[in-house]
């Protein structure tokens, strides 16, 4: 499956979604000018997982978001719902690694909410 790669800007994160190498991460700040346009190809990439052979074993999706705005939060939530479906209905073992600054209770709390609402397994890592 074709990897999705995006370099970071001062207001959007670096993103790598590479299934073959099991390297999946979001890193940086997320407050794109147009959230829907920004997240559309990312959602499409996760949707495509439903159509390809399922790799064996666990796959970590690392979220290391220093800051994300509230409209990004809504899209990130939708990605977690999608991951939940992919795990349940397509037998993937995707888990979320939620990395946060140990001083940043808001980002940690957001991770707890996302885990609670999506039912996907989160591993919390304070940095």
């Amino acid at each position: 499956m074709n990897p999705f790669k995006l370099a970071s800007t001062e207001y959007t994160p670096e993103i790598v979604l590479d299934l073959d190498n099991k390297e999946l991460f979001f890193r940086g700040e997320c407050r794109p000018e147009n959230v829907s346009t920004f997240f559309a190809p990312i959602v499409a990439w996760f949707e495509e997982l439903k159509t390809v052979p399922v790799p064996e074993g666990q796959i970590s999706v690392v979220f290391n978001l220093d800051y994300f705005n509230s409209s990004s939060a809504k899209h990130i939530m939708d990605i977690f719902f999608l991951i939940s479906d992919i795990n349940k209905d397509y037998n993937y073992q995707l888990e979320i690694v939620w990395e946060y600054d140990e001083d940043d209770e808001d980002v940690y709390d957001a991770g707890v909410e996302f885990e609670d609402l999506s039912g996907v397994k989160f591993i919390f890592k304070a940095l």
Binding site: N34, V35, S36, N69, S70, S71, A73, K74, H75, M77, D106, E113, L117
Partner: peptide, 26 residues
């Protein structure tokens, strides 16, 4: 906020309807 995150949709203005809630909580 949780309800909007779960059930809300992005408005035609590009907001998730949670900006004010988010600020009030923070």
């Amino acid at each position: 906020y949780r309800h909007q995150l779960r059930n809300g949709s992005i408005s035609n203005k590009g907001g998730a309807g949670i900006g004010l809630l988010d600020m009030a909580i923070k």
